[in-house]
Each structure stands twice: as C-alpha cells, then as structure tokens.
Amino acid sequence: MSAVTLSATPVLTTERLVLRAPVAADWPAFLAFTRDDRSRFVRAAEMDDEKAWRGFGHVIGHWVLRGYGMFTITAKGDDRALGMAGPWFPAAWPEPEIGWSIWHAGAEGKGYAFEAASAVRDWAREALGWTRFVSYIDRENARSEALARRLGCTPDAAAPTPGTDDVRAWRHPEGGAA
C-alpha cells in the first residue's frame, strides 16, 4: 500500500529554513529531544519514550484534526528536523497559540526559532485568518520569553492558561500579516 502522509500541507521557505509537515522520519530527532533536559519546559513532567511516541503522533494528527499544526523546521538543503513551530490548538486550550521548540542543541543560538516562528505566524495570519492568539511559555523558560519579546509579545495576565500556572500567556500583536 502507499504511504500515509500529510500530503496537502504547505511548505514555507524563509531566508535560511524550510518549514514542512512532520514526517515519520522526524521521530528519532523528536525522541532525542524529549529525552534531553532541554525539553523540560515543553513536555510532561513524567516523560518516557511511549509518551513521547504518542505525543509525536498527536503532533502529526493535529494537522488532520485542525487543518493546521506544527511545521518541522529544517535548514535549507538539509532535511534533518531541527525543531518545530506552528499554530497549535489542542482541545481544552483556552485559545489558539503559536508554539515553537528547537530540538537540537546545535541549532540553538542562530535565530532559527525566531525565523521559524515569524514565518508560521505570518502564515497563521494570512492562510488561517488568525488575529488574536498567544504563546504559552513556562515562567522559567527565559530563552523562550526572550524570543516572545522579539516577536513583539507581552505577558497577558488576564489570559487563562491550559491547566497549569507554570506557564504564562504571551499575547502576540493583533492585526493582519506584517
């Protein structure tokens, strides 16, 4: 039988990156990230490989269920998964968010997350018509907070958070695509 893929998903290109739909081949990179202490701000407290698998299944399934989801971040000319970024809205989320994570330590510190998050935010505004949305960020995740500030976000104390007070909602600037 033919492979089952997310075949109708867009591919976004930025100066240095290609953002594409997640594929089965991204699983080892995702798993390595969930095993790494660097993922502590974006994963369940009691993580194991089985939960990571189910979590990655959800990352893929979210696309089918919502029509949008996390793009895998790759560098131009190299299809290896470096992280993910995209519009994200699981059930029980108070409102839609733009999420991001850099899986590979070697991909940090290059501005990739900013470049990717900017591109997926533009896409969410243009293609999905999003105007009002947040990013949920752990209060101790200083690097992600710094990125949110670069994206023009400000903390929104009035916005509910998804089930935990460990995170704050960072409100993105409202309006259409930049």
């Binding site: 089952v4 698998w53 299944g57 399934g61």
Partner: peptide, 10 residues
C-alpha cells in the same frame, strides 16, 4: 485521538 490519527503516518 491525535495519536490515533498520527499513528497512520508514523
């Protein structure tokens, strides 16, 4: 349920 869907791709 997301995993139920994603399992097909994985």
């Amino acid at each position: 349920f997301g995993h139920v869907v994603g399992h097909w791709v994985l």
